[in-house]
Design a protein around this nucleic acid. Structure first.
Length: 551
RNA sequence: GCGCCGGUAGCUCAGUGGAUAGAGCGUCGGCCUCCGGAGCCGAAGGUCGCAGGUUCGAAUCCUGUCCGGCGCGCCA
């Protein structure tokens, strides 16, 4: 039970009582608006504010101010609320009870790592597929956003109480594997790399380290088959590299799925025949088509080419069936916005297969423009001009990069200045948050040396200073922050929250000396420091950012 | 041409119908006998791209328009 739901419910109860008592009359068939509740930016407006009266005005056909007064009159405050008031043009403002606030330190501290977790009522099963870069080269900075957006989203969903399967999809089936193999073969033969080949240094390195058995197999192969032999080997090498890079970033996956397995296990055939039975498949010009126009698409989509080879979309049809067969409530795809052309046909295919299209959610993140000394960095894998993700981590460090990506809405196109990211590293907000955590740890160390220990008994009377109260109010906001981020499938509330919490902790540190001659005060403040430390660590953990005990 | 995403402070970005539009960086000015100065306090800085509309109320919703990014394959 969060503070937010507590207060919302009390307002709804007040509304119902007001209606029963006749203080409010609602049109009989009118739907009641949901109670809006927010933390106002201006402290003069209290700790929580509701616009319920203004939202009720149309259905109650009364002035918002009068409705607000009626609501307040019938309001039975929960223990957390000290006072309510009405403000023009009809806001209901509530102030938390300071003693109640202060008394929350113990429970927050006792909850520890679990605080802010399991905050949703209905837990669901999510499949989150992200990164899924082709195994034709190392991950580059263009994959960074998808990796961190997906990772943090998974952390948030899991913290909120959902079950999450993290999945990576390898396209090991299409022509790019052959093109990669052809590039390796050409380099070994001293021939020019084909037009559609890959040119990075990593291709050269691979060409120089092909194992003997692969060479033998390639030389024994006929025609194009040699390209495939090299290609399959090279893409395995790249796949291992990708897995290692992601592991080094702290981005974990539960399932590594390959496109070829979707074909081999018959998911594509079964999916297509299901579509055919439903009347959404036809043949034309030797190709097999999905009737996407039946779902409002601009054009129908090819499933099998006239040469019989399946398209990428064919695998998507099989894959979405395979995912749903595992019993997920929602499938999340984290894609770069350049794939948005494929969104409609995937949703339409899911619908045609009999699935709820609302259970398929495709998150398109906008492109990042990487800039170095004012110049945009080109990142084409085929041209070989790119900065690898490993390079980026070595240069800037994982914590600032994670902060950078998780603190911006994924729909915003953003600039990432590599030089600036390094140069400003000491001014970076991520260090400010980590610093607050380290400082809290330091205070606790000092306390231990002096034989002082935290005690949350009696904080209700001792932690009434405005800075103490403000800090605790921020701690109380954490569960809502997690719940809201999970609900919105968006992560950037979390860094903002962490920063504000760090600021509140700094203000507390400035105003309230923890280690004092008064044992009771010291024990209470130590409990608050420990609670703040714990919540800072929880917030950083959600972002996959380290919480150092000293810096 | 059609579609998707953007346009908010000098820069990078928050703000998905509410009260005086916010933060970081940068700029300017203050604060170190005291638990960590990677800190604290204060200031300057914005016709929310533009024009209409919807309503008690619009950065937010609708329409149009301009600018930028990305798509519109029997590529993946």
């Amino acid at each position: 039970m969060s503070l937010r739901t507590d207060i919302s419910r009390a307002i709804a109860d007040a509304r119902d009582r007001a209606i029963r008592s006749g203080a409010l009359t609602i049109a009989p068939d009118a739907a009641l608006p949901t109670v809006g509740l927010e933390r106002p930016a201006n402290p003069d407006h209290g700790d929580w504010a509701s616009n319920a009266a203004m939202q009720l005005a149309p259905v109650a056909r009364a002035a918002p101010m009068r409705i607000a007064e009626a609501l307040l009159e019938h309001f039975e405050p929960p223990p957390s609320i000290a006072a309510g008031s009405v403000a023009a043009p009809g806001f209901l403002n509530f102030r938390l009870a300071p003693e109640w606030v202060a008394a929350q330190v113990g429970p927050i501290r006792d909850a520890g790592d679990a605080y802010g977790h399991h905050v949703v009522d209905g837990a669901e099963r999510f499949n989150v597929e992200f990164v899924s870069a082709n195994p034709t080269g190392p991950l580059h900075v263009g994959n960074a956003r998808g990796a961190f957006v997906g990772d943090v989203l998974c952390r948030v969903l899991a913290a909120a109480g959902h079950e999450v399967v993290r999945e990576y999809y390898f396209n090991d089936f299409g022509g790019q594997v052959k093109a990669l193999g052809a590039s390796v073969r050409a380099l070994r033969a001293g021939e020019p790399i084909p037009e559609d080949g890959y040119r990075g240094d990593y291709v050269r390195e691979m060409a120089e380290s092909v194992p003997a058995e692969v060479i033998d197999a390639a030389e024994a192969a006929e025609g194009d088959e040699a390209d495939w032999v090299y290609g399959r080997w090279a893409s395995e090498v790249q796949r291992r590299g990708i897995e290692a890079s992601l592991a080094a970033l702290g981005v974990a996956f539960d399932v590594w799925k390959t496109e070829s397995s979707i074909h081999d296990e018959g998911w594509v055939e079964r999916g297509v025949s299901k579509l055919r039975d439903a009347g959404y498949v036809y043949e034309d010009e030797g190709a097999t088509w999905f009737k996407a126009t039946a779902f409002g698409d601009d054009r129908d989509r090819v499933i099998y080419r006239s040469n019989g080879a399946p398209t990428y979309f064919a695998a998507d049809i099989g894959y979405v069936s395979e995912k749903f067969s595992r019993g997920f409530d929602e499938l999340i795809y984290v894609w770069g916005e350049n794939h948005h052309g494929a969104v409609a046909r995937l949703l339409h295919a899911a619908e045609a297969l009999g699935h709820d299209p609302d259970a398929v959610r495709i998150l398109l993140y906008s492109w990042v423009r990487f800039v170095r000394e004012g110049e945009a960095v080109s990142m084409s894998k085929r041209s070989g001009q790119f900065v690898t993700l490993d390079d980026l981590m070595a240069e800037v460090g994982a914590d600032p990069v994670r902060w950078f990506f998780s603190s911006r809405a994924f729909t915003s196109g953003i600039d990432f200045d590599l030089e600036l990211a390094k140069k400003q590293s000491n001014e970076n907000p991520v260090y400010y948050v980590q610093y607050a955590h380290a400082r809290a740890c330091s205070i606790l160390r000092h306390a231990a040396e002096q034989g002082l220990s935290a005690d949350a008994q009696g904080t209700g009377e001792l932690l009434l200073h405005p800075s103490e109260q403000e800090l605790i109010r921020h701690l109380l906001d954490f569960p809502d922050t997690v719940a809201q981020a999970a609900e919105r499938r968006e992560t950037h509330d979390v860094p903002r929250y962490a920063y504000e919490l760090a600021t509140a902790f700094s203000a507390f540190y400035r105003d309230a000396k923890v280690l004092t001659d008064d044992a009771g005060v010291s024990a209470a403040r130590l409990a608050l420091v420990d609670a703040a430390r714990s919540v800072l660590a929880n917030a950083l953990q959600l972002l996959g950012i380290s919480a150092p005990e000293s810096m």
